[in-house]
């Protein structure tokens, strides 16, 4: 599984970081950093939660 970020949609609201701080971090410049773009399969539920938490639908999961 791979996490895909649409930078045009991301507005640095940080909900993904709030859900999964080991995988997402908003930097001081406002840019979202994917700390691990290919999470292990066992973290799927958490990744789905992070994707759903994004108010601007900027995240998606690719297989």
């Amino acid at each position: 599984m791979r996490i895909v970020l649409d930078e045009n949609k991301c507005s640095s609201l940080g909900m993904c970081e709030s859900v999964a701080p080991d995988f997402f971090e908003v930097g001081d410049d406002g840019a979202l950093k994917l700390l691990n773009p290919t999470p292990p399969g066992g973290r799927r539920a958490l990744m789905e939660e992070a994707v759903a938490a994004c108010p601007t639908s900027a995240l998606s999961i690719e297989e």
Binding site: S18, E25, G27, G30
Partner: peptide
Amino acid sequence: NMPGKIMKYRA
């Protein structure tokens, strides 16, 4: 204008 900090405080 501090988007990099706020979620750390939320946690």
